[in-house]
Amino acid sequence: MLAKRIIPCLDIKDGRTVKGVNFVDLRDAGDPVELAEIYSKEGADELVFLDISATEQKRKTLADLVFRVAEKVNIPFTVGGGISSVEDVDVLLQNGADKVSINSSAVKNPQLINDLVAKFGSQCIVVAIDAKQIDGEWIVHLVGGKVPTDRKLFEWAKEVEDRGAGEILFTSMDNDGTKDGFANEALAKLSTELNIPIIASGGAGNKQHFTDTFVNGKADAALAASVFHFKEIGIQELKEELKENGIPVRI
């Protein structure tokens, strides 16, 4: 049976992990490669690297990082953050990324999704969508959720699927950082209306939240950052609990 995936997300700036991490056994807490190896050993199913740097050397630094991660890690990983062209994606995939995630650039230029899918295939194109509710309506936001657009979540998600994206990474800005659980109602609607995998993001605070998002949110995968980085939840124990709750996981 296809397992539900657990995906730690690492924020990267200038080739280093940004958020403080609480791994005592790390030689270098800022080294994404070392952290990636640890997550991989602990049973993470996939990794996401989100590059938030804005320097001119960004592209090269990120490509170097991707190369170093691919060298060491034997599970799939996705790279996102500021990717806006076919060339950007080409460099990252050539260096060993399995998938890339695009967000703002897809909203600004939806044709980019088609172009990437035509060149690289659906399987490696993830579209990330950040949204929050305004007057009861889920509205797509840009720039890490700061800037509202005129797009509605479910319409945009359908368009993203129609344009050929292989997966959607949905982050609820209403839930992100709250540790109160994922936006399961919206997730379930996405998962039911669309026929591509949906990754839940934003709101993970405890193990039960993961069970809830797989059962109630019908998510195919769940992504979180701080609960893993600060060791509030261990991936192994999380998977044991999911298994006890009857959710298919890889242990």
Binding site: L2, A3, D45, N195, P197, A221
Partner: peptide, 13 residues
């Protein structure tokens, strides 16, 4: 078929 999500992405047995 469209009875399942396509592509299949992830870990299966």
């Amino acid at each position: 078929s469209s009875k399942v999500k396509v592509p299949q992405i992830g870990w299966n047995q």
